[in-house]
Design a protein around this nucleic acid. Sequence first.
DNA 1: GGTGACAGAAAAGTAACTTG
DNA 2: CAAGTTACTTTTCTGTCACC
Length: 287
Amino acid sequence: MKNQDIPERLLNDQHMDSLSSFRMYQHTLDRTIDTHWHQFYELALVLSGTGIHSINGAPLRMGRGHVFLLTPADFHRIDPDPGQTLRLYNLIFTERMISDKLAGHLFERSNAYHCEYGQEEFTEAEREFERILSESAEWREHGDIIVQGCIERLLVDLSRSCPPSEKEEAVLPVHPSIRKALVYLQHHFRSPLLLEDVARLAGLSANYFSESFAKQTGLTFQAYVRDMRLQFAKSLVSATDLPITEICYASGFNTLAYFERAFKTRYRVSPGNLRRLEADLAGTVGV
DNA sequence: GGTGACAGAAAAGTAACTTG
DNA sequence: CAAGTTACTTTTCTGTCACC
């Protein structure tokens, strides 16, 4: 797979240069932002306006106080209501901006975070976002430490405000190295991955890593990564009309043949057929 | 709890093809 | 022309074992 074959939109974002680990925006949206995803984390707070926010294909109402955190494993789409302008703080950052401890805690859950802030929480969050804005507007000494503090406070508040639902109370590997690897995988599962590299990152030998990983997650390393990619691909198949080929590469697969094979083995149906089946179903139900 | 060697197993890629 | 299949090859992983 050569780079020139990958559709432009799937290559990683121009939004963040390699030097900085975060970027802060104040967005004003009056038109649809079509389905997209990032290599980094995205935290946002809606200041005003209303619309529909679809996270991984699931639509949610959004308005003032709506807050969400997306990981690189999520994709989303924003449709402002007709005549409405959405204003929001938008912060993107890489895992370098947060401590291992916080990353491990936040991203052990499977779903994206989203909830509605009350006035008090809203004011708190607004203050942190404002501080990040002012720190990034002009460089001052140790600005990075301030920003990191703001981001970490925002994230802790968010996790307190939207506790995980019962059903997703995942049992997590206790082994700190494996936890670290899982956080890394969540961030990088769409990129080429070698067990050896992830093992090194986790600080274990390849063999022992492979063994411990399987023991703690119940899946082998390869199966785990493949499942993450397939899950992402399946959501895209269902929620978008992107071509299957594009979804294949976007999900981290390098060949269409293998992708089709793996998809069919896992879901008993080829990607294209799944899309047609779901379209038919939606048609008969009248959605 | 952990490493390193190693063989066999499984995954992933290639290429050529069919289908609609 | 994109999607899907298949036989075949190459690469990578996993399980086992000896050892610390």
